[in-house]
Design a protein around this nucleic acid. Structure first.
Lengths: 262, 262
DNA sequence: GCAATAGTGTCTTTAAGACACTATCCC
DNA sequence: GGGATAGTGTCTTAAAGACACTATTGC
């Protein structure tokens, strides 16, 4: 049983704050909680999708939200995000190892959570490879991959619409300077598949020939496996060579978006 | 008076967590606090400096730390960071308006604060123009601009050394793609002064002629004021034209670091 | 005068984009 | 065969870096 007073923590107080900051004794503070929320992106059917869960209880019961939850006492933030990622996606460990996860931004506007507890959320961004099966949530919650276009017509719980926007924007930038587009495809991929990642995330058509040459010219981006696809494309065309990631994390030169160059 | 039980919040509990997450009633949770800490960078004497405060009370009494403090109940995170910036730097409002401030990263490793309260800190990064006078702290705390080189020999409180590293790294990248180098200089500046910002932050010598032409070729980076400096350089040379920021936030093309192009 | 700096000119190399073209595959 | 795709070749333009050069100033 821990008893806490809630009196002193008022706004006008640089003095009160200094006093508070420098004591070892648990003192008055307002009830505060910290969660992690995940923007997990993947590509399905040539469209960008995000993992959402349907809330089964208030607040925002019945509405869709980003997966997430409270940070446990003995967890670091990244661990908490990794745990939620595992719990909510139901991915196998082999796939999980290939998921990219980075901290996105922290949101803490007063009132963003209607409960009588001030909740700060540390948003994380994840890139998942293609997973054919729909997600089975661990809790009673319903979980699904929703296309980004579809989320525009949905009202997401809390401030999750803003968090999602922030995540998509970060993802668009990440593709330019990093090799993270490979996180969206399988361990072996064709240059076309890689180009498709860029086209879907950026929402722009890229020139196949120039893209091919550009990717090949970046040192360490991709390396040949020696194999090719079993079949040609669905609508014709030759078999494509299969590549794997070449070990480089930063791209030199970068793959800049066409719209930004103008 | 608010009474809180501290029993239920143990590790093994996806169930407990779900139960907790979905209730309106204040329930059991461990004592948690959220602070903001600031990495405030400026340039003095052709070296990058960071604002540090000397702690007057435990924990880490007598050690140097990044300025910061608890987020107040009615504040958003950015507001809290802006308030701390104002309180700790003692800058005039006219200078304060020209300071750039952005969220950096959140740190929450268990045990990063030795007090019996789990403290998450949302780190912010700020770029301040040159301020001749040493800083007067508002609290009893001692505050000073410390050169980055000098901080290497200091043991900073908490995990502030890691936060500082993160901030410097972010700053180095920011200069490439944004016009934020102008945040380090006055409202009017010469191209040499701007080049000095890049050289100090990146720790590399740049070619004066090529830098000059490159800056002028970026649309909207700088615009002429029509004036020049009153005198030439300290060690000779003609008077330099004065420029102001041209309104562009993103640089096209970017000013890439020489070391990254190799 | 001497040294240092501001600013410009020019040349080479690299990379991006437009376009064309061949080879291979599905149907 | 027809249509689509994989991958390469070539040309033009933009931009980065190396180097040289002139003009202006402090001392």
């Amino acid at each position: 049983m821990l008893t806490l007073r809630n009196t002193q923590f008022e706004k006008d107080g640089a003095m009160e704050e200094a006093e508070w900051l420098n004591t070892y004794e648990p003192r008055a503070y307002p009830p505060v909680g910290v969660t992690v929320d995940l923007v997990i992106l993947t590509i399905r059917d040539k469209e960008l999708h995000v993992l959402l869960v349907e809330r089964g209880e208030p607040p925002f019961m019945g509405e869709w939200a980003l997966p997430g939850g409270f940070v446990q006492p003995d967890e670091d933030l990244h661990e908490a995000a990794a745990r939620e990622l595992k719990e909510e996606t139901g991915l196998r460990q082999s796939d999980l190892d290939r998921v990219y996860l980075e901290q996105l931004k922290t949101f803490g506007k007063p009132g963003r959570d209607p409960r009588p507890l001030r909740v700060f959320t540390v948003a994380y961004l994840a890139f998942a490879p293609q997973v054919p099966e729909p997600v089975a949530g661990t809790d009673a919650k319903n979980a699904a991959w929703i296309s980004l276009a579809a989320t525009r017509d949905m009202k997401l719980a809390f401030d999750h619409a803003a968090i999602l926007d922030e995540g998509v924007e970060r993802a668009r930038n990440k593709l330019e300077y990093s090799s993270l587009a490979t996180s969206f495809v399988g361990p072996e991929f064709t240059i076309s598949e890689l180009r498709n990642v860029y086209e879907v995330v950026w929402g722009e058509q890229l020139h196949p020939g120039n893209f091919h040459r550009k990717v090949m010219s970046v040192d360490g981006y991709v390396e040949e496996t020696g194999r090719t696809t079993e079949r040609g494309g669905e609508r014709g065309g030759p078999r494509a060579r299969l590549y794997r990631w070449g070990g480089a994390t930063q791209l030199h030169p970068a793959l800049l978006r066409p719209s930004e160059t103008t």
